[in-house]
Design a protein around this nucleic acid. Structure first.
Length: 567
RNA sequence: GCGCCUGUAGCUCAGUGGAUUAGAGCAUCUGACUUCGGAUCAGAGGGUCGGGGGUUCGAGUCCCUCCAGGCGCGCCA
């Protein structure tokens, strides 16, 4: 039987069950036992409780109305028509009309062999091979270090990118730099650096109330002072501001890039907003929108008729002073993404930008691109807690906790894991004490401990001269304990988990999956002695232990978290 | 006022796209190693899934409404 997707044994088993049900339905219809049009969509699922079999099917309920029969009698017709098959051990009808399937143990052995053969590739598929996915995330203003909030977007985006890569999609990560010269925030930032610079040189100037107070502002000013001395003290104010803003921005971008790299996130491209203005692409985009009939002038400004595409109201594209707005540049940016051949755009924005989604989609649609191919993930706020106390944060006041401080405090692994583990539409409370605690309360330690424990077993096995047979040679039929089969089933669900997390855009699912897998391993470890009296059993278990390490390592790697050999 | 998000065990949160008996971690209590890492495992208690309607054979899940909280609603970005 042909594999539909490379490396998805559990899915293979599921596909096989699907085909069997399909054939049984057709057969029952041919005998006149059931009547329905076409072939219904059959969903085979892994039941919540294993008392309901390895797989279950609700098609009897789904078909009840059309067939005009009670679900249980439909289920009976289906079960009676299930042909003899090498994979199914037995079936049962349960509940309202569920058909539960119990598979022969061989399907579990296939999972272990598959993992053994594929190693680090296990979990990879070609399910997304036709996709060209461009993820845009973080995109923080270059007026400060990466904050904890931006880091959440970073982890979500980077992990989703890794997941898409595992589905065989072409993937790129982009950071959109909000470096437009006319940004009031950036000018304000530049002014703050000027003030610190003058103060460095002993001038008596005061930081305005709305200035940026952070230490990094002083740091940049000090660097300029060291390099250029007092050459800017008496300079033309406007020229000085422009120069300082530009240099400060460049310094911030460098720092952001370094922080993100240390966090395990690298971008394929840092896309400058200013470059869109300088190259004339913003103007071209506005002109194109006008040609297409979606703009009008009012009170000296040019407006996009975004309300024609579902936005609440129309949006200004060009101010009455001739300056294009942010949306004009963003429209040009998104048009550029499509022109470069990406067919799936994913933007990851903070909750404070959610109002921006309809106008961005409107601009894309007005330009003639498929707005439905843009998916904007809005993540909710991050709150830091320390000792049960909320840590207040304000960027301008300079008391934000930056990503680099967070990593110093709790480490990269805990930071990534904690920022990933909640669904992005839930607010995230980050407990600093928990993240750095080395105990079972800390989920990241729990998971990494499982990996280290496996490494310890394999080390010991090697020291004692045990051989770990290839899965094809191991006596996997000796693996019969419940803790063992539960573990294997979880291992087998990894490829499907990857595809689901990728295509549903739910990278946070990896966190509970990791906990589950670690728990199942710890349970197995407690119940089943690996290096024991029975050599064949021990070898079979070593093979299983190794397979578990493979999946755990692949999983941790997908989360951007290290898989330690020792802790 | 309008829009988006959230409301599930004492706490923090999952919930496989409507389905068999609502789950996990932590916290609390009770247990488990003379052998592979106890940074572990097992068991127990704990729920009107924010309230109320509706659709359905079946709703934590879909629709309506109300309540509470967060975030937005600019010729800022």
């Amino acid at each position: 039987m042909r594999r539909k997707v490379f490396g998805r044994i559990s899915v293979l088993a599921k596909d096989r069950v699907t085909e069997i049900v399909q054939a049984a339905l057709t057969s029952a219809r041919d005998q006149g036992l059931l009547s329905f049009e076409g072939v219904p969509e059959i969903t085979i699922e892994v039941p919540r409780s294993k008392e309901h079999g390895d797989f279950s099917c609700n098609v009897a309920m789904a078909l009840a109305r059309e067939a005009g029969l009670p679900p249980r009698s439909i289920a009976e017709h289906v079960v009676k028509n299930i042909a003899e098959d090498g994979i199914i051990e037995r079936t049962e009808i349960a509940g309202a009309g569920f058909i539960n399937f119990y598979l022969k143990p061989g399907w579990l052995h296939d999972i272990v062999r598959d993992i053994d053969e594929q190693g680090a590739e296990y979990g990879r598929s070609d399910a997304g091979k036709d996709l060209r996915v461009l993820l845009e995330f973080v995109s923080a203003n270059p007026n400060g270090p990466i904050t904890v909030a931006s880091a959440r977007g970073g982890v979500i985006g980077d992990t989703l990118a890794r997941l898409y890569e595992l589905t065989g999609a072409a993937v790129a990560r982009e950071y959109y730099i909000n470096d437009a010269a006319n940004s009031t925030q950036m000018i304000n930032f530049g002014k703050s650096v000027v003030v610190r610079y003058l103060q460095e040189l002993g001038k008596d100037v005061e930081m305005p109330e709305d200035g940026y107070q952070g230490d990094y502002v002083t740091q940049i000013a000090r660097e300029i002072a060291e390099k250029d001395g007092d050459k800017w003290v008496a300079a033309d104010e406007e020229q000085r501001l422009t120069e300082f803003t530009r240099r400060s921005e460049a310094a911030m971008i460098d720092q952001q890039r370094e922080d993100l790299e240390e966090f395990g996130i690298t971008f394929d491209r840092w896309f400058s907003e200013r470059s869109l203005h300088d190259s004339g692409k913003v103007k071209e985009t506005v002109d194109l929108l006008t040609e297409r009939g979606y703009t009008y002038e009012q009170e000296g400004a040019v407006w996009l008729r975004s309300s024609a595409f579902g936005d609440d109201k129309d949006r200004a594209l060009v101010r009455s002073n001739g300056q294009p707005t942010y949306i004009a540049a963003d429209a040009a940016y998104h048009a550029d993404k499509f022109r470069r051949g990406w067919n799936k755009l994913i933007n990851i924005w903070g909750a404070d930008h959610h109002g921006y989604v309809p106008r961005t989609k409107a601009a894309i649609a007005a330009l003639g691109y498929p707005a439905e191919e843009l998916d904007v993930i809005i993540y909710q706020t991050v709150r830091l807690f320390s000792g049960g106390e909320l840590v207040m944060m304000s960027k301008r006041a300079g008391d934000v906790i930056s990503l680099s401080e967070l990593m110093r405090e709790v480490g990269r692994d805990a930071a990534r894991y904690f920022l990933l583990m909640r669904s992005y539409d839930s607010p995230l409370d980050f407990d600093l004490e928990l993240a750095k605690s080395e105990s079972e309360e800390n989920p990241i330690y729990y998971v990494q401990y499982a990996h280290a424990r496996i490494a310890a077993i394999l080390r010991k096995a090697q020291e004692e001269g045990w051989s770990v047979p290839a899965a094809g040679d191991a006596h996997l039929e000796l693996i019969t304990e419940e803790a063992e089969t539960d573990l294997i089933k979880k291992l087998g669900s990894w490829p499907e988990e990857v595809a689901t997390a990728a295509f549903q855009h739910e990278p946070h699912r990896l966190a509970p999956f990791a906990i589950d897998l670690a728990r199942l391993f710890h349970k197995f470890y407690t119940d089943c002695r690996v290096l024991g009296e029975d050599r064949l059993l021990s070898e079979a278990r070593l093979t299983l232990v190794k397979a578990t390490r493979t999946v755990l390592a692949n999983l941790l790697n997908t989360m951007g978290v290290s898989a330690p050999e020792r802790m």
